[in-house]
Design a binder for these strands. Structure first.
Length: 225
DNA sequence: GCATGATCATTT
DNA sequence: AAATGATCATGC
């Protein structure tokens, strides 16, 4: 009854072969190969699809503060799409650092490192499709273009400046053309340290950086459009 | 609490 | 309908 783990891919080519081999399969098929079962829905298993794809490709499941395929320098992201291939959800990137941001620049930011090279796995996400019957799409290995990098940098700098100036609680998800900041927490009692309006220590909800759909939609469309 | 994996569900 | 703000599970 234990999970059938797969050894990590030894090259980018091997990773891509694996990704192409699961393309077109249903979640149930891939889950069966890994000796696991699909839950009825994602309500209490929000990360289930992401974990399934990790297992199917041989990523280390679980918590590590590095890329999924660190030796290959590749981050794995599943992205739920509709029948037209458009994203159904924003994409979580990383937690937003609320303290200790003196002298931090875009070039060495966590956001930029995470997005340096991403293997996107589109997956059917429409809720009318039973979870087990949803299919995996064709993989896309992506690196940000100069233009995309600059788009993200502009949003990042605006948002990080607000955090540094003690205005984290004034940040709304409406800000940022392509990159936004929203809560990222277990619940509303989870608090973390931040800088307040007068430079004082405050406790606030942890926040995360997310890619808006208007960033990921064209990215997917260029490849599959 | 923080980092991993995200989607849910209420509001607009 | 779509986006924002809130939340769910798991392992340290």
């Amino acid at each position: 009854m234990s999970i059938a783990y797969l050894a990590p891919p030894e090259s980018e080519a091997e990773l891509m072969r694996r990704a192409q081999q699961i393309a077109g399969k249903t979640f149930a098929e891939v889950a069966s190969e890994r000796q696991i079962k699909a839950p009825a829905n994602l309500q209490r298993n929000k990360g289930w699809v992401g974990n399934l794809i990790e297992l199917a490709l041989g990523a280390q499941a679980g918590s590590k503060a590095e890329q999924d395929f660190a030796p290959l320098g590749i981050e794995l992201k599943t992205i739920p799409i509709n029948a037209q291939g458009q994203p159904l959800e924003t994409t979580f990137v990383c937690v937003a650092p609320l303290t200790g941001n003196i002298g931090v620049t875009w070039q060495y930011s966590h956001v930029r490192q995470k997005l340096a090279k991403v293997l996107w796995i589109p997956v059917e996400g429409e809720r009318h499709i039973p979870l087990a019957e949803r299919r995996i799409g064709a993989p896309l290995l992506w690196q940000p273009s100069e233009e995309e990098d600059q788009q993200l940098q502009a949003d990042w700098e605006e948002l990080m400046e607000m955090i540094a100036l003690g205005r984290v609680e004034a940040i709304t998800a409406r800000q940022g053309e392509y990159l936004q900041i929203r809560p990222k927490a277990a619940n509303n009692r989870a608090l973390t340290e931040a800088i307040g309006p007068s430079g004082e220590r405050i406790l606030t909800l942890p926040r995360g950086f997310y890619l808006k759909k208007r960033f990921t939609a064209p990215l997917l469309a260029q490849h599959f459009g």
